[in-house]
Simulated assay, not measured.
Amino acid sequence: MVLTLPQPSKIWGQTSFAEIRGVWITKNDSDIWLDTPKLESSIQELAQLNFNTIYPVVWNSGYVSYDSAVAKRVGIPIIKAGNNKDMIAEITYQGHLNRLLVVPWFEFGFMAPPSSELALKHPRWLTNRRDGSKIGNSAAGQVVWLNPFHPQVQQFITDLVLEICTRYRVDGIQFDDHMALPRDFGYDPYTVNLYKQETKKNPPANPQDREWVKWRADKITDFMVRLNTLLKQRNPNFIFSVAPNPYSTAYNLFLQDWKRWVNLGIVDELIIQVYRPDLNSFVRELNVPEVQNARKKIPTGVAILTGLRNNPSPITLIEDKVRQARRYRLGVSFFYYETLWIEKPTETPDLRKAVVRALFYNPQPRFPVSKI
């Protein structure tokens, strides 16, 4: 079935899209992965609060969130939910039942824990720094990086993404700041030889060398273009969503040229991770040219941190950030569901829900009209 998406309207001579109102569903501190009734009531409540998009994690910590033939083929064991149900199928069904877009989140991208079966069974798939070291630090702890330039890695990622999007009737797939590579990496034998073949010289000793940065960033872009083409062949209306860091960080530190991806037309939705502790530093990232140019072409929003484990963000700060995002005509997505309603000494879950209800007082449907 070919899906028909709601058409954007014209406001003041510019394209206006339905405001993104999303939330990431992680496995951190989460019991909705284990409790089907709670999953149902949680998604129903999100719909009642006029959210329109959910991003459930399907790939993190070197494992997938479903029974994957691709994962088994490369030696990754399947870790099922405690209730032994296919929770991606459950989330997709409940999301669509409540007219929410369901866009699975490919959280770890090219990352994997050093102790994961993926890393241990496929050491040649890993890249390294110039000194040969492979382990880096991330928000998820210590990780290794799959080599995004290696054809076997590219095939594995492609197969995994196509499997997700073929097996489930989801509305798209989302890649974040880990569909990238820290600039210190890329000195593995495969990449060094490839660079030599194409440029007739050795990679620079300085990982910040502009030509070396661009060569690696362009290679990642080439892969993302091919991946987008394959997904669009399956379904032209499939949402290719990207949730990167602000551009300067994304490109200069992680070789992720998402501004070029937008200009190439392979990004259907952009959500920039603006995880800033104060309002002023948050606002500075909203009116930059690459963000404002993107919002004229595609649905664009910013990610707002609702809290981390046992440390929720104040609801007043969340409210202010949403209002500022709207001032710059941007949608929002909250990271992450389990901290949205978490209780603070001065804030009950009901109070936090009341603030969100007031912010999202009017519906902003994004659900494909052919499914309604």
Results as ranks from 00 to 15, higher is better:
residue 282 F to H: 07
residue 304 I to H: 04
residue 312 P to S: 07
residue 366 R to D: 01
residue 203 P to W: 02
residue 328 Y to P: 08
residue 313 S to G: 08
residue 125 W to E: 05
residue 147 N to H: 11
residue 285 E to S: 13
residue 47 A to M: 08
residue 95 G to D: 06
residue 334 F to G: 05
residue 30 S to K: 07
residue 139 A to R: 12
residue 189 P to I: 06
residue 163 E to Y: 01
residue 191 T to W: 02
residue 24 W to T: 04
residue 60 N to H: 12
residue 56 P to V: 07
residue 145 W to F: 06
residue 256 Q to A: 15
residue 214 K to Y: 14
residue 146 L to G: 03
residue 202 N to D: 14
residue 20 I to P: 03
residue 368 P to F: 03
residue 229 T to F: 00
residue 67 D to C: 06
residue 272 I to C: 04
residue 372 I to M: 15
residue 1 M to E: 11
residue 58 V to G: 01
residue 314 P to C: 00
residue 166 T to E: 13
residue 150 H to P: 02
residue 50 N to S: 00
residue 233 Q to R: 10
residue 349 P to W: 01
residue 203 P to R: 00
residue 16 S to P: 01
residue 210 R to Y: 12
residue 270 L to S: 12
residue 124 R to E: 15
residue 107 E to T: 04
residue 25 I to A: 02
residue 312 P to R: 03
residue 50 N to W: 01
residue 231 L to G: 14
residue 157 I to T: 01
residue 345 P to Q: 12
residue 370 S to E: 13
residue 157 I to N: 02
residue 13 G to C: 07
residue 209 D to W: 01
residue 33 W to C: 14
residue 237 N to D: 07
residue 269 E to L: 11
residue 18 A to G: 10
residue 215 W to N: 11
residue 152 Q to K: 14
residue 45 E to R: 12
residue 95 G to E: 07
residue 122 H to F: 04
residue 282 F to W: 09
residue 175 F to A: 06
residue 357 R to W: 00
residue 241 S to M: 06
residue 364 Q to L: 10
residue 315 I to P: 02
residue 313 S to T: 15
residue 66 Y to W: 13
residue 170 V to F: 01
residue 178 H to Y: 13
residue 314 P to A: 02
residue 353 K to Y: 06
residue 78 I to P: 06
residue 165 C to L: 01
residue 205 A to P: 13
residue 289 P to N: 11
residue 202 N to G: 03
residue 7 Q to A: 09
residue 202 N to T: 08
residue 272 I to N: 00
residue 178 H to W: 14
residue 298 I to K: 05
residue 37 P to E: 10
residue 22 G to I: 08
residue 180 A to I: 07
residue 291 V to H: 09
residue 281 S to T: 15
residue 129 R to V: 05
residue 305 L to R: 13
residue 64 V to A: 12
residue 330 L to Q: 07
residue 68 S to F: 04
residue 7 Q to Y: 00
residue 159 D to P: 06
residue 66 Y to P: 09
residue 35 D to V: 05
residue 6 P to K: 09
residue 183 R to F: 13
residue 132 G to E: 06
residue 301 G to I: 06
residue 275 Y to C: 09
residue 77 P to M: 03
residue 230 L to K: 15
residue 43 I to G: 00
residue 290 E to W: 03
residue 259 K to V: 12
residue 56 P to Q: 10
residue 245 N to R: 12
residue 371 K to D: 10
residue 346 T to W: 13
residue 224 M to V: 14
residue 8 P to K: 03
residue 259 K to P: 13
residue 253 L to E: 15
residue 103 V to G: 02
residue 11 I to W: 01
residue 118 L to F: 08
residue 213 V to N: 15
residue 113 P to D: 10
residue 159 D to G: 05
residue 54 I to Y: 02
residue 1 M to H: 12
residue 313 S to M: 14
residue 89 A to I: 03
residue 310 N to L: 14
residue 162 L to V: 10
residue 30 S to V: 12
residue 221 T to Y: 01
residue 192 V to Q: 09
residue 16 S to V: 09
residue 43 I to V: 10
residue 178 H to A: 12
residue 353 K to P: 11
